[in-house]
Amino acid sequence: MNGEELKIKLAELLPDITIEEGGEWLNVLIAPSSWLSFSNQLRNTQGLDLDYLFCLTCVDWKTHLTMVYHLTSTIHRHSIVIKSNLDRNKPEIETVSHTWRTAEFHEREVYELFGVNFLNHPDLRLLILPDGWEGKNPMRKDYEDPINIIKL
């Protein structure tokens, strides 16, 4: 499916999305509240079949956090990027680990590094960081560690 067809299809599924072009792939900005049903539609809708979540990450824009999901279809070979802006003080979004299994680990990583709370995640614990790092969110831009981070 090419970019135009994808755009029409996505707009059919969820009217209130913002689609921006320009990058390598289609960027779709959605509201966090609609993510749960939308992710299932992306995964299961005939013609979209975005079954492969190859990158899940978060970007801290100082004013808000942006979740970034890179999805591709192993059947049709088209890729899209889903973005969702979260409130920086209380970042919450629905988990997709039931839709794409690999998200379980990726979301745990984002949870500990950015403090995003994934609702209904089956096993939201620290993955990489040792115990005692809950709530410190080292990948946020305002994280300070005077011992280990040397400011140039």
Binding site: T102, E104, F105
Partner: peptide, 14 residues
């Protein structure tokens, strides 16, 4: 911001 999508991380989740 830079993110490395490492193959081992996803493979390990399985």
């Amino acid at each position: 911001r830079i993110k490395f999508r490492s193959p081992g991380f996803s493979n390990l989740s399985s």
